[in-house]
Amino acid sequence: MSHQIILPRVMHIGKGASERVADTVKGLNCRNPLLVTDKVMVELGYSAAIVNILETAGITVDVFSDTVPEPTVASISRGVDAFNTQPYDCIIALGGGSPIDSAKAIAILGKHGGQMKDYKFPRVVDEAGIPIIAIPTTAGTGSEVTRFTIITDEDTTEKMLCVGLGFMPIAALVDYTLTQSLPARVTADTGIDALTHAIEAFVSRKANLYSDAQALSAMALIAPNLRTVFADPSNDAAKESMMLGATLAGIAFSNASVALVHGMSRPIGAAFHVPHGLSNAMLLPAVTAFSIPSAPVRYAQCARAMGIATQGDSDDMANQKLINELKMLNADLQVPTPADFGIDKEAFFALASTMAEQALASGSPNNNPRVPTIEEMVAIYVSLWE
């Protein structure tokens, strides 16, 4: 059985990769880019640096910096309005997952029109949008190499999963030096997001030999370095490993899909405004424990790839070490419980069934080794308070 593998057409990876932006624009035969970013990138001077590189190369660029964390239908609409003011021929997406996800949505709506809900799963959006050059500034989402975007519908609080070739950037410039100004909390949350991508891609029912290779490599890069970059943001070697690991994890899940953690995480983020990586971290130990009985060999391989189990450990021992490690990782990275985050317990429990239904509707739980019922997902949500 063959598997379709989807990647950006152009990738530059390593120190200084972002400085190839002008060459990349010209190589795509584009002349009029729109830079999509956020206020943080403007304040840090990252967007000005990209603008300077482009203008030095004779390329005029406009900047749209009104993207928001966890992008919404309204924020995307503002981006589309900005895009429609000029005949832009490509979009440069600079930032974490939110600006890149925003750029993907703007590229599709800017070319094809309609509303965001018209493009949500189960529709598969394979028609091409405006070309996107993605420059990630976090080692986490892998959005620069994925065919997904997540946009929140404010009216329903649904985090809409949008899937297809149309959302794959045409180029990715992966420069770990852009992660050096991240706050520790963002470093931790995006790092756990990347680790979750790798684990879920490997245990996914849609996993294949290619995605397995990327996922195992990603785990081997991320697991030994996540605590280091959290404690010491000046460690270049650890930062470089995390950035490459996040990109490989993105390639893995883009070609194998995520599973139950992500399915259950999105509704928490939409309803209670929990950052995506953080809600993944809250769920990862409990979902892993729930899922191991249906894929003990696969999860044991994850533990060995992460360096927390040896080849001499039995699968049962490796899996116990995996669960313990995920719990300790949350403790070491100061991941709050839902209660510590400030979520109201009554409100959370009242929405648990709705969140489970939304998770199931996203399709991700069906990729899990152990496909849950609504009742089992509710039980996992409830367990987060124990």
Rank of each mutant, 00 (worst) to 15 (best):
M264F: 05
A218D: 03
A194W: 02
Y210G: 10
E240C: 00
E240G: 02
A252T: 06
T247F: 01
L209P: 08
L216Y: 12
D212E: 07
A223G: 14
S294N: 15
S279K: 15
N235G: 00
A246N: 01
Q301K: 06
M282R: 11
A300N: 10
A246L: 05
S265P: 08
L283P: 04
D193W: 06
S294E: 15
G250P: 02
F272E: 09
P224M: 07
M242P: 01
I199R: 01
V261S: 04
N255H: 08
A286K: 11
Y210I: 05
P293H: 13
Y299F: 09
A259L: 10
A198I: 02
M282Y: 14
M282K: 08
L244D: 01
A249V: 02
A207L: 06
P296I: 08
A289W: 00
A289T: 10
A259M: 12
D232E: 07
D212C: 14
P285V: 07
V203K: 02
A246S: 05
L284R: 11
A271V: 12
A246D: 00
A238T: 03
I222C: 13
P285Q: 09
V229L: 08
L278P: 03
P293T: 13
A303S: 15
N280Q: 09
A246I: 01
M264C: 12
S234E: 09
A281V: 13
N235E: 01
I192F: 04
L209E: 12
A215C: 06
V297A: 13
A259E: 02
S294C: 15
T288K: 03
M282Q: 08
V274M: 13
L216C: 08
R266M: 11
A218L: 12
I268W: 05
Y299G: 00
A218K: 04
T247Y: 00
M242E: 00
